Structure formats: C-alpha cells, structure tokens
Amino acid sequence: MLSKIGLRARRSGSVFIGIIGLLGLAINTCPQLLKPQRRRIFWLLFKRQLYNSGLRAASINTIIAMLLGIFVMSKAYAVIPNNTQFIDYYAQFFNIVVNREIGPLISGIILIARSASAVTAEVGQMQLYRQFDALSAVHMSPALVFLLPVFFAFPVSLMLMFFYFNMICVLTSFAMIELYHEGGITLVDYIRALLQQLTVVEVAVSMAKAMVGGCLIGLASLYFGYHVEDRFTDVSRAISNSNTFQLFAFFVLNIGLSYLVYL
C-alpha cells in the first residue's frame, strides 16, 4: 500500500513538474507574437479556442445558473424571514454561497468537462499519428499553434463563465424575489445590495481563481494529451487521467484560496 501511495505521489509530482515546464515554454514562446505573421496565426487560433471554450458553453452555463438561482432562493426563504430586510440578508447569502464558492466551482467543472476534454483528445490524436512532427517539418512551432491559444483562452473563458454565471443567478433570484417577496423591491435595489457585499479582495480572489485555474486546466489538458503513446486506447486514458487531475487540482485551488482569504 505504501509503495502504491509513493508511486502515485511521484506521478503527481511529475505531472506538476510537466505543467510548470509547459508554463515556462509558453512564456518563452510569447516573443514570437511580436512577428506580425505569427501573431495573425495566433489571433485566429485564440479566437477559435475562446469561442469553443467560453462562448459555446453559455447555454449549459445559463441553464445551470438558472436552476441554482431558483434553488438558492428557495433555501433562503426557508431560513430568512420575509420582511423588508430580506434583501440585505439574501445579498450576503448570495455573495458567500454563489459568488465565492459555487459559481467558480461549477464554471470550472463545465470548462473541464466540455473544453479541456476536447483539447486533450485533439492533442492526443495528433500525438498518436505523429502530426507534431509534420508541423516541425514545415517550421511551424507546435507551441504557437496549440500551447499559446489554450494558455491565453482558457483563463479568459473561465472569467467570462464566472461573469455570466453570476449574472444569470442574479436575474433568476430576483425573479424569485418578485414572485414571493411581500413589498416592492426593484432590480436596481437588489443589484445595489449585492454590490455592497463585494470587496476588492473578493474581486481579486475571483480573478485569481479564473486566471490560475484556467491556466492550470489548459496546461494539464495539453500535458496529458501530449503524453499519448502508440495505442489508440491511450487517448481515452489520457482524457480520464486529465479530467481526474484537473478536478482535484481545481477543487484544491478554490478551497485553498477561500480558506486562506476568508477564514
């Protein structure tokens, strides 16, 4: 048992070292963007990746956000009195439950399940059929074509997912307030109460979760896809290992940041 634990620890350590290596490679590749021709290629691939990972996930993100807004609102009414001060209590409840914790976690899970898996499969297929060698043969950097678009697009996508997830939750919860609350509350009053709960620290923590979490998810998907070998089943194994690692690492990141800042 101890030997298995040690083996898993060594494998996890090698994954983190590999991801750090990819981070260094991405930073070293960034100067290539100074060349106009390579910058145009990067920009096209970046927009494609941003559209696939962030914008096309809006529908599933919206549905989950609506359901969560209804669920949180119903639970809030079960524990908070229905009076004129309800909006202040619920704004605090919404900020702690949705903005700090559930919103980032669900957005990260959607990004992992929907986009990171696709990147791992795409890179794994290319590695399986040695297409990276073909890119190198025509003097095209694989880091420019695959690494940099994912490295920049995933954090931006996760930030966008945070934003519209929270916006849909806000609108859905306000609709529930209009349905159940006794007394007139406007949307402006509700948004003002929510903004009063936000601090600079909370905004910075949310941005850190998106930036660090997005980079971690993107680099991990590339790492596991690139380590596909000669068997076709290696692709599915790479996707499974990548998703497992990303979920664990993203949960640890979110819980760790929340624990350090808010407790």
Rank of each mutant, 00 (worst) to 15 (best):
M126N: 09
G124P: 11
V203W: 10
D88Q: 15
F250K: 01
G184S: 14
Q92H: 12
S107Y: 04
F165G: 08
G184P: 00
I110H: 07
A78F: 13
A204T: 14
F251H: 04
V123L: 01
A76N: 14
F42K: 07
V203P: 05
L33G: 05
K4P: 00
V170I: 14
A118I: 12
E229G: 04
D133H: 08
T244P: 01
S157F: 08
R38L: 11
Y129I: 04
S157R: 06
F86D: 09
A118H: 06
L216N: 07
Y190M: 07
L34A: 11
I217G: 07
D133Q: 12
P155T: 13
I17A: 14
G13W: 15
F152C: 13
S258E: 05
E229T: 10
A153K: 00
Q197M: 12
N83W: 11
I185S: 13
P155V: 14
L2G: 04
R100S: 09
A238V: 11
T29A: 15
P104V: 03
S107E: 02
T233R: 12
F224L: 10
A210F: 14
L219A: 01
G256R: 09
R10A: 13
I60W: 00
A143M: 06
Q32N: 03
S74C: 00
D234E: 06
R192L: 10
P155C: 14
S59M: 05
E182D: 13
R130A: 02
A26K: 09
I41S: 12
V72F: 10
R237H: 08
R10V: 10
I5Y: 15
G69E: 13
Q37K: 15
F245W: 13
L187D: 08
I70A: 10
I185C: 14
I109Y: 15
D234S: 03
P155W: 10
A118W: 02
P142M: 06
A249V: 11
Y51A: 02
L33Q: 08
S12P: 06
I41E: 15
F245I: 02
F152D: 04
S206P: 01
Y259Q: 11
R39G: 00
V212T: 15
G108T: 10
T62N: 03
A137M: 12
I27A: 14
V97Q: 03
I239F: 02
R38W: 03
S59I: 10
L247W: 12
Q92V: 01
P149S: 12
Y190C: 03
G6Y: 06
R114I: 03
S12L: 13
L135D: 02
F251S: 14
F154M: 09
P31K: 01
D189W: 00
R48Y: 12
D133V: 04
V188P: 00
F250G: 03
F154Y: 14
A220G: 04
I239T: 04
Q92P: 00
M207R: 07
A113W: 06
A134W: 09
A116F: 07
A204C: 09
Y190R: 08
F165M: 01
I110T: 05
I239N: 02
H139A: 15
A193S: 14
N28F: 13
T172R: 04
A26V: 00
F162Q: 11
I168T: 15
S173N: 07
P31V: 00
V200D: 08
G256A: 11
L33I: 00
I185V: 14
G183W: 10
L194Q: 08
A76H: 05
N243M: 12
A193W: 04
D230T: 04
